[in-house]
């Protein structure tokens, strides 16, 4: 039995919006970073599913998701380096406590 495309899309949508929700509500910088990864991976699922079900004759979606994975890795490395710096300077990565810059 072939699983229809809609099932994959629902899973990916749930992933995407839980990522957005997590990014907005989480207070820990690392947890925010994890939510970002969730968003990017949901997008990857979208690309792969669209490619597999709608346009199986070419591979653009697959390649796009490969590139997204690569860029996401770079982004995470950078974000973690900066979060370590934040921790060094304020001994905290809770975003309620990091408020040097405010009105």
């Amino acid at each position: 039995m072939e699983i229809p495309m809609q099932c994959y899309l629902i899973v990916a949508l749930v992933m995407f919006f839980s990522g957005v929700y997590g990014f907005i509500t989480r207070r820990n910088l690392l947890a925010m970073l994890m939510s970002l990864e969730l968003i990017l991976n949901a997008v990857n699922v979208f690309f792969v599913v669209f490619n597999r079900f709608l346009f199986p004759e070419h591979l653009e979606g697959m390649f796009f998701s490969l590139f997204v994975i690569g860029v996401a890795a770079a982004e995470t490395a950078l974000a973690i380096a900066i979060i370590i710096n934040v921790f060094r300077s304020s001994k905290n990565i809770d975003n309620e406590e990091i408020k040097e810059l405010k009105y």
């Binding site: 990014f23 950078l78 974000a79 710096n85 300077s89 990091i98 040097e100």
Partner: peptide
């Protein structure tokens, strides 16, 4: 401290 904090904000928002 401010520069580092701005960096953290910018990287999260950019991503």
């Amino acid at each position: 401290k401010e520069s580092v904090e701005a960096g953290a904000k910018y990287v999260l928002m950019a991503a």
